[in-house]
Simulated assay, not measured.
Amino acid sequence: MAKKSWIQREKKREKLEQKYHVIRRSSKKEISKVNLLKEQWKIHGKLQSTPRNSSPTRLRRRCFSTGRARAIYRDFGLSGHRLYEMINRCLLPGVTRSSW
């Protein structure tokens, strides 16, 4: 189980990312359209005025049940350890263990 403070920090980052998503996307489009370097710097300054934690690259994918940050399977949203346990208990429909 991950620390609760880490999970709360991640939730805070998600809220900030959603709040500033439109501003960040529009300023990035403006930078690509403008040719003058001074105008690009002005727009870049606007982009840098947003909080660091509003950047989508700072978000971390976490396990749905445990909050673990590593070895997450995107299809299930679970860590490898929890996924293995659920497959063994037949809790995931349509998933079969491999045997040969």
Rank of each mutant, 00 (worst) to 15 (best):
L36D: 14
A71F: 09
G77M: 03
F76S: 09
S79P: 00
H21K: 09
A69K: 11
V22E: 15
R97W: 03
L36K: 14
K38E: 13
R89M: 08
I72M: 00
S65A: 06
G94E: 00
P56Y: 03
L16S: 08
L47A: 05
I87A: 10
Q18P: 05
G80Q: 02
E14R: 08
A71L: 09
F64S: 11
R58M: 04
K42F: 12
S55M: 03
E30Y: 10
L37K: 13
R24A: 08
K28N: 09
L78K: 03
R61W: 01
G77L: 02
N35G: 13
F76C: 03
L59V: 09
N35Y: 13
R68V: 12
L91M: 06
S65R: 05
R68H: 11
I7P: 00
L59Q: 02
S49Q: 14
H81C: 08
K12S: 11
H44N: 15
P56G: 08
L91A: 13
S79D: 12
K46P: 06
L78W: 05
F76D: 06
N53V: 12
Y20I: 03
K38G: 09
P51K: 11
A69Q: 08
K3L: 04
Q40S: 12
V34C: 15
E39V: 14
R13S: 11
S27R: 13
C90D: 15
M86Y: 12
I43F: 13
C90T: 07
S99F: 04
P56S: 13
K3P: 03
L59C: 02
I72P: 00
N35R: 14
K3N: 07
R68D: 06
S55K: 13
G45E: 09
F76Q: 06
T66N: 00
S79Y: 02
G67Y: 01
V22S: 15
M1N: 12
K15V: 05
S98A: 11
Y73T: 07
L36C: 13
H44L: 15
D75Y: 03
R74C: 01
L92N: 05
R74S: 09
K15R: 13
L37Y: 10
S5A: 07
W100R: 13
F76K: 04
H44E: 15
W41L: 15
S79K: 01
W100G: 10
E14C: 01
I72A: 00
R82H: 06
N88H: 07
I7M: 05
R97H: 03
S54H: 11
A2H: 10
I72Q: 00
L91I: 04
